[in-house]
């Protein structure tokens, strides 16, 4: 895996990350489409995710929780806006009970296959800073942060494989 571009748009509250994987597009799609594979990467190592609902259809829902070191559970959800396997997925995401009234953070995933690899573009548009803080909390496991050493270890494993 190689991250080839990152764009942080402060005014539009949008983060875009483009990465490349040495695998066919159908294979990369499976990490999103197969809940057992999704739960192997969504949460950080000390907060593994368990996917309880996984309906990747327009209007469908994904529900998951992450379990912390002391057994606490952090609940999160996606609401699928549109899906076009194996090329694109767009969903709203949040944590706690879904709230239909507030604008939500949206994530857009686009996969493009080239002869030897697949390019994945992830565009996250945040509705507000309050949403960012909430999602950051659940994303990392509330109040915890991956130590830089852990990230280096993950990078080393990825580079070696």
């Amino acid at each position: 895996m190689t991250v080839i571009a990152v764009d942080r748009d402060l005014a539009a509250l949008t983060l875009t990350i483009v990465s490349e994987f040495g695998a066919p597009v159908e294979r990369v799609w499976q990490v999103w489409a197969d809940p057992r594979q999704l739960e192997r990467w969504w949460g950080p190592p000390n907060y593994p995710a368990t996917v309880v609902d996984h309906d990747l259809t327009d209007g469908g829902r994904v529900a998951y929780y992450m379990t912390g070191p002391d057994g606490e559970k952090l609940h999160g959800w996606w609401r699928i806006i549109s899906v076009d396997p194996p090329r694109s997925l767009e969903f709203e995401e949040g944590c706690g009970p879904p709230n239909e009234d507030l604008p939500a953070t949206t994530a857009e995933v686009r996969l493009v296959e080239t002869p030897e690899k697949t390019t994945m573009t992830i565009i996250t548009r945040f509705a507000s800073i309050a949403d960012m803080e909430q999602l950051l909390g659940i994303g990392k496991g509330e109040g915890t942060r991956l130590a830089l050493g852990q990230i280096d270890a993950i990078l080393a494993i990825t580079t070696a494989s």
């Binding site: 990350i17 192997r40 996250t124 950051l136 494993i157 494989s161």
Partner: peptide, 30 residues
């Protein structure tokens, strides 16, 4: 700006783990 940078770090971690999943389809990368 730092808050967006935190999200970038979060996604870089996820992308690294996707790389692991693709390299080890049967698991055992935890």
């Amino acid at each position: 700006q730092a808050l967006l940078a935190e999200f970038e770090l979060l996604w870089r971690g996820r992308l690294d783990r996707i790389g692991d999943v693709l390299a080890n389809p049967l698991g055992g990368d935890r």
